[in-house]
């Protein structure tokens, strides 16, 4: 199966490990990975901040880059959601809307793709310890990928997945919110990290680099002993 990888800008620049794990994992599962070098950011930071015109430029570029793909897979719930939003955002330009719809239809967040398309649940991964999961807002509320990460993590050898109090609460990232409303964002991530610490988990696992960067940033600042991992890294561990 041919998979076109949309790495996301955060993975490209800050979290290449997550990209590498995604590639290796999908290859192990029998996929052939294609990586269009023309890809940039999905436009979400600009879009969410209200710079819709500018975002549309980036979006149209991304549509051209990805429209030939068979499956588009991305290790980010939030960026997958953004691709799904493209047709709606471009609704005033029927041609583009149509092309955007085709792109949206074949876009999957990584865990969704593995469970829904590859129909795999036990990937033979091993990680010893207790983990709790950050269920990102866009991934669960907007994309609707709620159960897939748990389905996959419950099959990881040696890993005990434990509940997280107030797991539905946002971590306070929100893209530019994290700097524009730094004081509020700090309180939100602090509350999230307290719940993570209270869970006594060794690992905090998530499927969105934005949220993870935020949570890890706070964990590192507090010198908390929790290790933050992207789900691709966990599923690729042996």
């Amino acid at each position: 199966m041919k998979v076109t990888l949309f790495a996301t800008c955060l993975v490209d620049m800050f979290h290449s490990n997550v990209g590498k794990a995604t590639v290796e994992l999908l290859e192990k599962l029998g996929c052939e990975i294609e990586f269009p070098q023309g890809q940039i950011c999905c436009g979400q930071p600009a879009y969410n901040s209200g710079y819709v015109k500018d975002a549309k430029q980036a979006m149209k570029h991304m549509i051209t880059v990805f429209e030939q793909a068979e499956y588009i897979v991305t290790p980010s719930g939030s960026c997958a959601t953004m691709f799904k939003e493209y047709p709606h955002i471009l609704k005033d330009e029927p041609d583009w809307q149509h092309r955007a719809q085709l792109v949206a239809n074949k876009t999957y967040e990584l865990t969704q793709f593995i469970v829904q398309v590859l129909k795999r649940e036990d990937l033979g991964a091993t990680l010893n310890g207790k983990a709790t999961v950050h269920t990102s807002c866009h991934m669960t509320r907007l994309l609707g990928a709620k159960s897939e990460p748990f389905t996959l993590l419950n099959n990881v050898q040696g890993l005990e997945v434990i509940p997280l109090d107030k797991s539905q609460d946002c971590c306070g990232f929100g893209g530019t919110f994290s700097v524009k409303m730094g004081q509020i964002s700090e309180q939100m991530v602090d509350e999230k990290v307290s719940h993570i610490e209270d869970s006594k988990a060794d690992f905090l696992i998530g499927a969105d680099c934005g949220c993870l960067m935020n949570i890890k940033g706070r964990i590192d600042r507090k010198k908390s002993p929790v290790t933050v991992l992207h789900i691709a890294e966990v599923l690729n561990s042996q």
Partner: peptide
Amino acid sequence: SREFPAPDQERFRDWM
């Protein structure tokens, strides 16, 4: 209130 990650020396796209 938080650490910010340093950009990776090698971008993911270059690794690819």
